[in-house]
C-alpha cells in the first residue's frame, strides 16, 4: 500500500512540475498558434534569476521565508521583461506566416537565449538548496518527503485554478477565448488581438519562468536545463491536446504517474514511458485528449 501511495505522490509532484510548464506552452499555442520552443529558455531564465535573487536575499541575511517570495518575484520579472521583448521585438513581425516558420523563429530565440544565459551566468551551476530543505519533511509510511513538494503541488493547483478562472470567469478571458476560437472574427468585432497576444505571451512566459524558479531549489541550475523541459512539456501538451488547459493538467498527471510507476516497477522502461503514453493517446485521439473541434472555414 505504501508503495502505491509513494508512486502516486511522486507522480503528482512530477505532474505539478510538468503542468507549470505545459500550461504556459498550451496557452500560447491556443491563442497564438505558436509552438514556443523558447519556453525552455524562459524556464532556464526563471531558474537562474530565482537562484540569483533568492541567493542574494539569503546571503544578505534576510528572513528565509522571504526567499520564497523571491522565487515568485523572479518569475514575474522574467515574464514581464522577456514576454514583451520576444513578442513585440520578434514574433509580431512573423505573424501570418506558416506555423513552421514561427516554430523555427522561437527555436532561434531558444538558441540565442541559451548562449545569453551562459554569457550572463557562466557555465558553473548555481545552487539554492535552502528553500527546499527549510520547511522540513513529512512522511508517507516510512518514506520522508520534503514539505516543499506540497508547496509545488499547491502552486500548480493555484496556477491551474487561477488560469481557469481568468479564462472562463472574466471579461478579458472571454475575449481571449474568442481569439482562440477565431482570430479574424474577433478582430472584426473590435477585439485588440495584438494586445491579447502580448498579454498571453507574457503570462505564458511568466508560467515558464515560474516553473524554473520553483524548480531551482531542487536542482543544480546549470546550462542546458531548458532543453529537457521543452521536450517533456511538448509531450504533455500533445497528450492533452494543443491549446487545452484541462488537457495539459490531465496529460501532466498521466505522464507523471506512469513515469513514477515505471521508475519503481520497471526502471528499464522509464525513458520510454512518456513517449509510450503519447503514442497510445495519439493512436486513439490524433489531436490529443481534449483538443477542441475546429470549425471548417469556407
Amino acid at each position: 500500500m505504501n508503495d502505491i501511495l509513494a508512486v502516486l505522490f511522486d507522480g503528482v509532484v512530477y505532474s505539478s512540475w510538468l503542468f507549470l510548464m505545459a500550461a504556459g506552452l498550451t496557452l500560447i499555442y491556443g491563442v497564438m498558434k505558436i509552438l514556443n520552443i523558447a519556453h525552455g529558455s524562459l524556464y532556464a531564465l526563471g531558474g537562474y534569476t530565482a537562484a540569483t535573487l533568492a541567493g542574494a536575499w539569503l546571503a544578505a541575511g534576510q528572513a528565509a521565508i522571504g526567499s520564497y517570495a523571491m522565487l515568485v518575484a523572479a518569475a514575474v520579472l522574467v515574464g514581464l521583461v522577456m514576454g514583451p521583448l520576444l513578442e513585440r521585438g520578434l514574433l509580431r513581425w512573423m505573424y501570418g506566416r506558416d506555423e513552421v516558420v514561427l516554430l523555427l523563429v522561437t527555436y532561434a530565440a531558444f538558441l540565442i537565449l541559451e548562449d545569453a544565459i551562459k554569457l550572463i551566468w557562466g557555465v558553473e551551476s548555481m545552487l539554492l538548496p535552502d528553500p527546499y530543505s527549510l520547511p522540513g519533511n513529512f512522511h508517507i509510511g516510512t518514506l520522508a518527503y520534503p514539505v516543499y513538494n506540497l508547496l509545488l503541488i499547491a502552486m500548480a493547483i493555484l496556477v491551474g485554478l487561477a488560469l481557469a478562472w481568468a479564462l472562463f470567469r472574466t471579461r478579458q478571458g472571454k475575449l481571449l477565448l474568442a481569439v482562440i476560437h477565431d482570430r479574424e472574427m474577433s478582430a472584426a468585432m473590435g477585439i485588440d488581438v495584438n494586445r491579447v497576444y502580448l498579454v498571453t505571451f507574457t503570462v505564458g512566459s511568466m508560467l515558464a519562468a515560474l516553473g524554473g524558479a520553483l524548480t531551482a531549489p531542487m536542482i543544480a541550475v546549470s546550462p542546458g536545463i531548458g532543453v529537457e523541459v521543452i521536450v517533456l512539456s511538448f509531450a504533455v501538451v500533445v497528450v492533452g491536446g494543443l491549446g487545452s488547459l484541462g488537457g495539459a493538467a490531465i496529460g501532466a498527471l498521466m505522464v507523471g504517474i506512469v513515469r513514477s510507476a515505471a521508475v519503481r516497477y520497471w526502471p528499464e522502461a522509464e525513458l520510454f514511458t512518456i513517449y509510450f503514453v503519447m503514442a497510445l493517446v495519439l493512436i486513439a485521439r490524433p489531436k490529443g485528449l481534449f483538443s477542441a473541434p475546429e470549425a471548417r472555414k469556407i
Binding site: D10, G11, Y14, E270
Partner: peptide
C-alpha cells in the same frame, strides 16, 4: 535520463 535533474521517484524507490 542524462541531465534529468529531478530524482524524486528514483529516491523513493531507492529508499524503499
Amino acid at each position: 535520463k542524462l541531465f534529468a535533474g529531478q530524482f524524486g521517484a528514483e529516491i523513493s524507490t531507492l529508499l524503499s
